[in-house]
Nucleic acid binder design. Structure first.
Length: 881
RNA sequence: GCCCAGGUGGCGGAAUUGGUAGACGCGCAGGUUUCAGGUACCUGUGGCCGCAAGGUCGUGGAAGUUCGAGUCUUCUCCUGGGCACCA
């Protein structure tokens, strides 16, 4: 067995001589995998076109960012996709299975700065490396359809789409907040902000307002929410996450009149709440730090301005804001209660109120919201309970450390007293609307999608700014707007903005000097429509309508759970926007979704606490881990997602080199269900290799020779042959069902069971050689989608001229699936006391009688009267005493 | 902090969806073949008691529903993913 360089070993073992005398009895995967990859490629097996005669099936794996080399997550993702693609092909579908590159992005710019290489060069080099790596996996892609999003031939179409969106009112420009690094003079991604500081500059990040492009995803809020119900082949949890992300809530907007301490006139304050029933428990109002009222008050109040500046240091990420200590600043302004003319309450600026949600202002009801309660306790504000449990005494009910958020009856609320929460909401909403002090309102958490990035390596936004004409779209015939190749990425600021000439352009409308938009698109832009481009990747327009109409939607989309919300929601929005602009006819891009788990591995550290690669660690003679180089002790940490930062990575290339692609693929499919995390282990890959060589040996060097290819089925079979024959058909049925339901690990287990059973079948009983041929041909066909090279090799070895890739899935003889006998469990008081082998669908009374006379049953019953016997036919008999 | 998952032998996992817990694989132990083993094959393998037959406990923890709970309900602990400029 080949060595594996990254494997910790108990002892050092010399490398086996692969060309030695036992070559004949070993599977030479290197030769076989290269041979079959060449064959598939030469015969253009996986090139497809529209074919109205056959049902179509579009399998798509999330395309990779070309980061340099493929990692195990890719191997898992593409193994899953290839299994589905090959399986559906075998089942007669016309399968579209393309691959491409999500090629714009930040890492290319970072690499450019770090290694002085142009982002385009870096990206194309990486693509070449990764394409070659993927090809060694034997994936059934139609490589003719390969696309890279950084090619102008790709992004020119999205520039056109953007202009169409603009015309439809789906794109617009407004001010919005960003993380600003004052040293680099650039906007930072949330991941580039570490502890509130820029990752490279180390200086404190500021929130700053920039004019940015937005896509109006909120125009589809309701539709995106409602149509989740139709996505019945999506995981529930993803639909739930999207539902929560969209965050539809029914509440009310209401106005509070304001009183400034200096008597100045102030506009009334509009708040949004979903708990308008608790209005009589309101004891303060709070507004966002960037609320217009806050900004206005700050002009005359330096202390308040300082507090706002403090809030702005928090960064823009919701996690940062939510986990920060809740702080408030009393503005001195008082808000008048809308239903109690005499009552006023303080208006705070609070760092947990978000300008982007609702109206950027809330009223606080400490009795019935934990965050409000914490805030009230901190700033010494009143707590008035207005909802009490139905069985509580309204007069004495009070709130201590915990807000009461459950259902109950209204108290201390004048005309609402005694009502339930829902009735109180209705009553309040009615009164608000009657007096003009507010109205019912549906609110969404979902915000419009900001697509402007102040970066070089992205798609240019095709807009020109003219002093006379204002904002002017680039004319369609002038597309694409391409990137300059000579931008300076090392200087602070936006590279396109800094470029000496690129932005200077004649106004498309009046011809006078004007300036290009120097922002580029968010890279989610490209990945929001690539699935459709694959239908006609070389078309002159974005999509050949006949092609997208034939292939879309994607029947099965496969990728990481980390994309559950953003990428998938943006793609759903984009599809609707493209439909509105007449590009395509569908609104949901992905009919089926499979979200795979991560590939994890143990972590290792040396004595100094530095991370170690698995390669750098081995097991000493005492079983403890040591540094392979120094022999110093190493510690093993728990298993986490493989990542460069934890150094717990295993390089797929070395695995494929040592074990072959099929063995790596088998391991990816065995054991763990696709949607769960997978634990990489050296023992696991060894086990997969053992199966590979064992199956190869069993087929190429059978103990009992198989019947000839064309031998007709015998008139009768010996009992063991009959039993095996039934098992073959049962396995085909079960594996098919497992594959349909993405239970790939179970499918592998069942195939192994069948192989074990066939291994035990030998001798010269009637039908044995015939069943062995049926059995192994079936096994080879069943593993075809999982281990395509080995399967192709064995299929050829079994005497077939037609490629397995062109061979249909095995047929089932339904008659052989019918069981004659079943094993029924017998319990006494729910505890297993024995089993009975009974003819299937036996009479209940007979089964019960047989159960009651079992030795262990009579012993357990011990003469006590039988109170009841529960018989579940073909399953269980429970005797209750 | 908010949202979403997941906790089953030494390990990855299976359990016909409320009906025999531990399929299949890994690991481990004993054996056979072999000059040799990181090979191949055979046997065993959840804990505890027992020579055995068998008994008993057992699905993160606590309670509940049920003839019967890994599966349903409530509470609780732990681990992971996402949180809008990483992709």
């Amino acid at each position: 067995m080949p060595p594996i360089p990254s494997t910790p070993r108990v002892t050092e073992i010399p490398e086996l001589d692969k060309t030695g005398s036992d070559t004949k009895s070993r599977y030479n995967f290197k030769e076989a995998e290269a041979k079959w990859q060449a064959t598939w490629s030469d015969r253009r097996c996986f090139a497809v076109s529209e074919d109205e005669e056959r049902p179509k099936y579009y399998v798509l794996e999330m395309f990779p960012y070309p980061s340099g080399r493929i990692h195990m997550g890719h191997v898992r993702n593409y193994t899953l996709g290839d299994l589905v693609a090959r399986y559906k092909r075998a089942r007669g579908y016309n399968v579209l299975h393309p691959m491409g590159w999500d090629a714009f992005g930040l890492p290319a710019e970072n690499a450019a700065i770090a290694n002085n290489v142009h982002p385009a060069q870096w990206t194309h080099d990486n693509i070449a490396t990764m394409r070659a790596q993927l090809k060694t996996m034997g994936l059934s892609y139609d490589w003719d359809r390969e696309i890279a999003t950084c090619d102008a031939d790709y992004y020119r179409h999205e520039q056109k789409m953007f202009l169409d969106f603009l015309e439809q009112g789906l794109a617009y420009r407004r001010e919005s907040w960003v993380n600003w690094d004052p040293v680099e003079e650039t906007v930072l991604a949330n991941e580039q902000v570490i502890d509130g500081k820029g990752w490279r500059s180390g200086v404190e990040v500021e929130k700053r307002q920039l004019s940015q492009w937005f896509l109006r995803i909120t125009a589809f809020s309701d539709e995106l929410l409602a149509d989740l119900g139709e996505l019945d082949r999506w995981p529930d949890r993803v639909r739930l996450m999207q539902e929560n992300w969209i965050g539809r809530s029914e509440g009310a907007r209401m106005f509070f009149d304001l009183e400034a301490p200096d008597g100045a006139a102030l506009e009334r304050l509009e708040v949004y709440t979903t708990r308008h029933d608790t209005i009589f428990g309101a004891t303060f109002c709070a507004i966002a730090a960037n609320h217009p009222l806050a900004i206005g008050l700050a002009e005359k109040n330096p202390e308040l301005a300082a507090f706002i500046a403090e809030c702005n240091r928090l960064g823009t990420s919701e996690a940062a804001i939510e986990t920060a200590e809740k702080l408030g600043f009393d503005t001195g302004v008082r808000a008048r209660h809308p239903f109690m003319p005499g009552r006023t309450m303080p208006v705070f600026i609070a760092n947990f109120v978000l300008m982007d949600y609702g109206t950027g202002a809330i009223f606080g009801c400490p009795g019935h919201d934990q965050r409000d309660l914490d805030f009230a306790r901190k700033y010494g504000l009143d707590v008035i309970p207005v909802v009490a449990p139905a069985d509580a005494d309204a007069a004495t009910f009070s709130i201590a450390d915990e807000a009461f958020v459950d259902d109950g009856l209204m108290i201390n609320s004048e005309f609402l007293d005694g009502l339930g929460i829902e009735d109180a909401k209705t009553e309040i909403a009615g009164r608000l609307e009657a007096t003009g002090a507010g109205q019912r309102s549906i609110n969404y958490r979902l915000r419009d999608w900001g697509v402007s990035r102040q970066r070089y390596w992205g798609c240019p936004i095709p807009i020109v700014y003219c002093d006379d004409c204002g904002m002017v779209p680039v004319a369609a015939e002038d597309l694409p707007v391409t990137l300059p190749t000579d931008a300076d990425l090392d200087a602070p600021g936006n590279p396109l903005e800094n470029h000496p000439t690129w932005k200077n352009v004649a106004c498309p409308a009046c011809g006078r000097d004007a300036r290009r938009e120097t922002d580029t698109f968010d890279t989610f832009f490209e990945s929001s429509w690539y699935f459709a481009r694959f239908c006609s990747p070389r078309a002159d327009i974005a999509f050949d309508r006949a092609a997208v109409d034939y292939w879309l939607p994607v029947d099965q989309y496969i990728g990481g759970i980390e994309h559950a919300v953003l990428h998938l929601l943006y793609s759903r929005f984009f599809t609707r926007a493209m439909k509105q602009c007449g590009y395509i006819g569908i609104k949901e891009p992905f009919a089926g979704l499979l979200t795979q788990g991560m590939v994890c591995h143990e972590t290792y550290k040396d004595e100094g606490g530095e991370w170690l690669l698995p390669d750098e660690v081995r097991r000493g003679a005492d079983g403890k881990f040591v540094h392979a180089g120094t022999g110093r002790p190493a510690t093993v940490g728990r298993s986490v997602k493989m990542s460069k930062s934890h150094k717990n990575v295993v390089d797929p290339e070395s695995i494929i080199d040592a074990y072959g692609a099929d063995t790596a693929r088998l391991f990816m499919l065995s054991d763990s269900p696709p949607d769960r995390d997978l634990e990489w282990s050296d023992a696991g890959i060894d086990g997969a290799w053992r199966f590979t060589s064992r199956l190869w040996r069993m087929v190429t060097q059978p103990k009992t020779p198989f019947a000839a290819d064309d031998e007709p089925s015998p008139a009768s079979l010996a009992p063991e042959a009959e039993k095996a024959n039934r098992a073959i058909h049962r396995t085909v049925a079960a594996v098919s069902l497992d594959l349909d339901r993405f239970r790939f690990n179970k499918a592998v287990a069942r195939i192994r069971e069948l192989v074990n059973l066939l291994d035990e079948l030998d001798g010269d009983a009637i039908g044995v050689p015939w069943v062995l041929r049926q059995g192994f041909e079936t096994v080879v066909r069943l593993i075809g989608p999982m281990m395509p090279h080995l399967a192709e090799e064995l299929w050829s070895n079994l005497g077939h001229d037609i490629l397995l890739a062109d061979t249909p899935w095995p047929e089932i003889d339904e008659a052989l699936l019918v069981e004659e006998n079943v094993t029924v469990a017998v319990q006494v008081n729910g505890k297993l006391r024995g089993t009975l082998d009974l003819p299937k669908d036996s009479d209940n009374e007979a089964a019960q009688a047989a159960a009651l006379v079992l030795d262990n049953v009579t012993k357990a019953v011990a003469g006590k009267p039988v109170r009841k016997v529960i018989v579940v036919p073909n399953r269980i008999i429970n005797v209750v005493v």
